[in-house]
Amino acid sequence: MKVLVTVKEVAAVDDEFEIDGLAIDDRYLSYDLNEWDEYAIEAAVQISEAREDVEVVTVTVGGPDTEETIRQALAKGADRAVRVWDDAIASAGLLDPATKATVLSAVVEEEDPDLILTGVQAADDGFGATGVTLASAIGWEWAAVVNSLDLDTEAGVASVHRELEGGVEETTEVDLPAVLTIQTGINDPRYASLRGIRQAQSKELAVQSLSDLGLDAGALDSPMEQTSLYEPETEGEATVYEGSAEETAGELAALLREKGVGEA
């Protein structure tokens, strides 16, 4: 059995930052493994530990700089990694869910997995749609926002919980093969062990171009174009207390007492 996990490196913005045209200046960005993908990786590794002969392969669309992040996934127990990149992707604008699904479909064709796990969304651009778009593109079943997963490969069914709004979960049976988008909290992602980190260095990390995957640059054509980037106007009219921690705490305490808080 083979489990394919999509892994993205995402950018987080510093508290203070500047916008330069349509992007945030790189000085103010720090990069890390997408939080949701950590849970998807852990889910895949747990599947491989519970069964014989399970290979966990990660796939990332990203430049050479993302290899450190990909090695984190390998250190946590993925067996090998595929990184899709070439000049055309580097110079492409926005990769919308349909475009990503096109690229990932080609990887699926190459890898022929039995199960695909993605994070629910990416922390930076957060479309939250790539997994389901991919499922539809390759003709597989799917479930979005999965926070419990029980795999019965013999029956060919995944029993999942989908985390709905308002503290309600839906229980669903999904025919395999399927794409499941994994929600945070489904498991307790492990830290990479020193041994894992060492082993990750020698695990296969293959780079594939669009042409390696049988695609051309036309696969990246998107009707979407980013036209502006700006800081939203704050709607806030908060009274902000100034001063030392003791001073601000004192003022807040006075307010709370006024509201009747803390009066036994």
């Binding site: 913005v13 945030i24 174009e225 980037l229 939203p232």
Partner: peptide, 12 residues
Amino acid sequence: ELYGSKVETTLA
């Protein structure tokens, strides 16, 4: 919104 609501973007 992008980056956890820190910035907004428009897509045509």
